[in-house]
Design a binder for these strands. Structure first.
Length: 936
RNA sequence: GGGCGAAUAGCUCAGCCGGGAGAGCAUCUGACUUACAUUCAGAAGGUCACAGGUUCGAGCCCUGUUUCGCCCACCA
């Protein structure tokens, strides 16, 4: 591809900005994001949670993209046919909210859109409401808005490196998905699972619509509890006192209720009270639901404005009087308060009651009030005619699917939360008095008065009587209704498309835990109902991202971190790596700049390690690196065997962790290996042979450097797609390519794009562990070498040896002397010991009089530092070490002296303890002799 | 009122199957050693919230307690 220009040499610094956009384009144009369909393999499929078209991406989207992209890239590299289907959600109420705000404030953006759609511009700067536009214009505005933001959203997914199949992008209001909405509505309607009726629902006066129970946010607030006297009829100054937090609802009272067993009121039950202000006569009734211990034990009953009262009203066949308009003002049933706002009415009514001497008392009272999830306005429960989904019959199979393990929820604790909600599920109010969304597919006939339901977009004539005097229900459906169909509506349902047959059910549904009920639970119900199958087999829930202080990010708090800013500064890979390694499933994470910076440093480290390896190969013209498999065994030295063993164990571990959805831990393991083992030790040790005179040794070293680097790039690719691809491309163009490519198992076609273009790391096979490289002896021996080096470095610093000074070292290695002797060059280089004055032998022939004595395992290291050693200090150091060793010996002795430990602990644990004790004793002995020698 | 999560180094967090606790950042020493100062070498720092229990052995399992956070719930 021309988009990738071959660079002869890797630039000194990695610049994400110059790389990321170019690579994304290369991937997308190369067709790498599209699934390679194989009828014989089960595909791996994720439906991307569709972001709302309300605005730009935030960190919540970034973590979704990151985790899903990791899963997707991993499966794709493993050779699974892999589909990640992207899209966006029309988000009706959320879009209404942002458009309303733009219209009210006459924001330049909204005015611009109005101009674009050709809406006659209203004069002046007067604020607009959606009613000023009317339904048609408002919908045009919605589409214009959607057009703008879906483009922005796609760009942001690209920035994040999301390898989703854009050719299958969907929008919840696409014709096909809209058709799926109507189809499912009709099916449920025909089965009696969707019904219409007068029920109590939460209405948001600001949004102008009812919302479902889930959209109610309960918040504790300080309010007042008003005690109001209701005079009794036919009595002398008799009254019953009730308590209420919402005095304005008194206007809708149709009864007073007490508990049937309440002795205080047993004489008034059956009598009547006079409703204050309005003077209506209302009955006093007995109902079990009243709590005699609360307030006065008598409660006013407002069936049209309170859920409990609604039920009392039903039981006692009371009158339902709705006293408010949809916008929160009082209606004609409110008497003199008609037209007044509900809260103004409250104030006026309380004053009125007080004036009449009917206000007994007012208490401060903290209670939970329902707010609108979208705009935070206090909701008004009120009765109205709405559409509902009967959820209990849908919940039963959904509960079973999770209970019997067909669907697994990660982390597991959410399973309990899911069941708790499902088992207590209430009917779902799905109608909304809004415009932007799917119109309810029901038509009412003015001729016969019956209703018709159809999957067709329009209905020319009544299905019952044929009259053309039909009008569609003005309401639209809850956004989540269409979201609930997402896993299959996006694949073509209700048509039996090839995609639906092949890709459904999908594999993993990954999202934030806060929409478990809104979305996940409903997808399971609707999936089972509509397709007869589960919509996905695994639910993976991630946590929320908070700011550095653990606060929830919100626009009003002003603490929102824009992922674009972070990516601009540190690169996409750094942000992704931070998000995934800094979190565990289901737990919230705090994001800080420092964490991202650290990840950026890691990309830099990787970049430079790669630069080192490539330069090492390119600069040695005469040497031909071999595939690792072809390196003669005698050429594989201890560090080689060690890094190969470590690398293959890493592959096994990463594979296990990925399969177990522990992506963060997998990322951390790769980080540890790459930085702490490959860079810190292997590369440093390799320099000896790389800069040495033996061409075959050089070749072998290069081979291993390249082999381990290239495979680790592939391991890391799902986490950090850009930097790994960029380096990998440099490898492809290097002389090393000939060596790298034959080493990759699998079909060659995998490495090329669908069009047969250049290869990409994203379709190269994911590295698998090969047990023949496991080498316990090499790991143990190299471990000792590293310990010796660390001990010498440590001593150098402690005794203030100049950093550049090469010192002498004598190592008494006992039975280890043979193989350890072979590592002399490594020890000398890494510990800055003079190779000429490094002696490794079973025992030391001569012991220098003034020397530091280090005991490393069973090996003794003497550093003759004549003139630099403070004898007293050295003596003290040795004594400290002896004391520490003695206390460890004491523990081991006690443990092994414990008969029950020896008899009941597993044999290998006991054996390990014995070996440890022996080693400790040897160490103590050596330290003691060292101290004696010092004295001599 | 129910339920869930968290509590581990100064800070932010890992820690799988129970077998003498780790990382990053911050701090302190030192180093421009030819991949990398976005680096390297080294140091210091922990009663794993508390109290019991199970076990030969507990950060991990069980019971209770405390603190913080979250979710669900129609006490007006």
């Amino acid at each position: 591809m021309e988009t990738l220009t071959k660079a002869k040499e890797m630039p000194k610094a990695y610049d994400p900005k110059k790389v990321e956009g170019r690579l994304y384009e290369f991937w997308e144009k190369g067709g790498f994001f599209k699934p390679r369909i194989d009828p014989n393999k089960r595909p791996f499929v994720i439906s991307m949670p569709p972001p709302n078209v309300t605005g730009e991406l935030h960190l919540g989207h970034a973590i979704v993209d990151t985790i899903e992209d990791i899963m997707i890239r991993w499966h794709r590299m493993k050779g699974d046919p892999t589909l990640w289907l992207p899209g966006s959600d029309h988000a009706s109420i959320a879009v209404h909210y942002v458009i309303d705000k733009g219209l009210t404030s006459r924001s330049p953006e909204m005015d611009g859109l109005l101009k674009d759609i050709g809406f006659p511009p209203p004069p002046g700067r007067k604020s607009l409401a959606r009613q000023d536009l009317g339904r048609e214009w408002f919908l045009k505005l919605g589409w214009a808005w959607r057009e703008r933001y879906s483009g922005i959203i796609k760009k942001q997914h690209e920035r994040l490196g999301a390898s989703c199949d854009w050719s299958r992008e969907r929008f919840t209001m696409d014709p096909g998905l809209s058709r799926a909405v109507r189809e499912s509505f009709v099916r449920l309607y025909n089965k009696g699972l969707i019904y219409r009726g007068q029920y109590l629902a939460n209405r948001c006066p600001r949004c102008g619509t009812v919302v479902s129970d889930l959209e109610v946010v309960h918040e504790e607030e300080r309010g007042k509890l008003y005690y109001v006297r209701y005079p009794l009829t036919g009595g002398d100054d008799e009254y019953v006192t009730v308590a209420t937090t919402r005095p304005e609802t008194i206007l809708g009272d149709t009864a007073v209720a007490v508990h049937p067993g309440d002795q205080r009121y047993k004489d008034v039950v059956g009598r009547y009270a006079i409703l204050p202000v309005l003077g209506r006569t209302i009955p006093i009734i007995a109902d079990e639901s009243v709590d005699p211990s609360f307030g006065t034990g008598a409660v006013k009953v407002t069936p049209a404005h309170d859920p409990t009262d609604y039920e009392i009203g039903q039981r006692h066949k009371l009158q339902f009087i709705n006293v408010m308009n949809p916008d929160g003002t009082m209606n004609q049933y409110a008497g003199i308060y008609a037209g007044m706002d509900r809260f103004a009415c409250r104030k006026a009514l309380v004053a009125h009651l007080e004036g009449q001497g009917l206000l007994a008392k007012v208490e401060d009272y903290v209670h939970a009030i329902g707010h609108c999830q979208r705009c935070d306005t206090i909701l008004e429960p009120s009765i109205s005619e709405q559409w509902f989904v009967k959820t209990k019959p849908l919940a039963l199979p959904a509960i079973a699917a999770v209970r019997d393990g067909r669907i697994r929820i990660i982390p597991e604790r959410f399973t309990k939360i899911y069941h708790n909600w499902m088992e207590n599920i209430r009917d779902w109010c799905i109608s909304r008095q809004l415009w932007w969304g799917h119109r309810i597919p029901v038509w009412y006939c003015d001729a016969c008065g019956k209703e018709s339901v159809t999957v067709e977009e329009t209905l020319p004539a009544c299905l019952q009587c044929g009259s053309d005097r039909v009008r569609q229900d003005p309401d639209i459906l809850d956004t989540w209704f269409s979201s609930a169909l997402w896993p299959f509506s996006t694949l073509g349902w209700p048509e039996e498309t090839d995609d639906l047959k092949y890709f459904y059910p999908t594999s993993v549904l990954e999202t934030a835990y806060d929409i478990l009920f809104f979305w996940v639970a409903r997808m399971i119900m609707m999936g089972l109902e509509c397709t007869g199958d589960i919509p996905f087999d695994t639910v993976y829930l991630h946590g929320m991202i908070r700011d550095e202080r653990g606060m929830r990010m919100s626009k009003t708090k002003g603490n929102v971190v824009n992922p674009l800013d972070v990516m601009d500064e540190f690169g996409t890979d750094a942000l992704r790596f931070t998000l995934v390694t800094g979190s565990t499933p289901g737990n919230d994470m705090k994001l800080s700049r420092q964490k991202v910076e650290n990840s950026r440093n890691f990309t830099n480290k990787l970049w430079n390690a790669a630069r080192f390896v490539l330069q090492a190969i390119e600069n040695k013209e005469e040497v031909k690196p071999l595939p690792v498999q072809e390196i003669p065994e005698e050429r594989l030295l201890l560090p080689d065997q060690w890094i190969l063993s470590r690398h293959h164990r890493l592959c096994a571990e990463v594979d296990r962790l990925m399969a177990d959805y522990q992506f963060g831990e997998a990322g951390r393991q790769i980080y540890e290996f790459l930085w702490g083992e490959f860079c810190d030790w292997y590369i440093e040790a390799s320099k000896i042979r790389l800069y040495g005179h033996d061409p075959e040794a050089r070749a072998a070293t290069m081979s291993i450097l390249l082999y381990v680097l290239e495979r680790t790039l592939r391991l890391l690719h799902p986490f950090m797609p850009f930097v790994t691809e960029e380096i990998w491309q440099h490898l492809l163009f290097s002389k090393a390519a000939a060596m790298v490519l034959p080493n990759l198992p699998g079909e060659p076609a995998l490495f090329t794009s669908k069009e047969g273009g250049r290869g990409s790391i994203m379709v190269a096979p994911y590295p698998q562990a090969e047990e023949r490289y496991y080498n316990d002896a090499a790991e143990r021996e190299m471990g000792l070498v590293l310990e010796i080096v660390r001990a010498i470095r440590n001593a150098r610093v402690e005794f203030e040896v100049e950093p550049n000074r090469r010192i002498a070292a004598l190592i008494a290695a006992g039975s280890n002397a043979g193989w350890l002797g072979d590592q002399a060059a490594v020890i000398a280089a890494l510990a800055r010991v003079d190779p000429e004055r490094l002696a490794i032998a079973p025992h030391l022939a001569e012991k220098p009089s003034q020397a530091l004595g280090l005991v490393v395992g069973t090996v003794e290291v003497l550093l003759p530092l004549a003139g630099m050693i403070d004898l007293a200090a050295e003596q003290a150091r040795l004594e400290r070490e002896m004391a520490a060793t003695e206390s460890e010996i004491a523990r081991a002795v006690a443990l092994l002296g414990n008969a029950s430990f020896v008899s009941r602990a597993p044999a290998n644990v006991v054996e390990k303890e014995k070996e440890k004790l022996a080693a400790l004793q040897e160490r103590l002995d050596k330290l003691f002799r060292r101290k004696e020698a010092l004295r001599a």
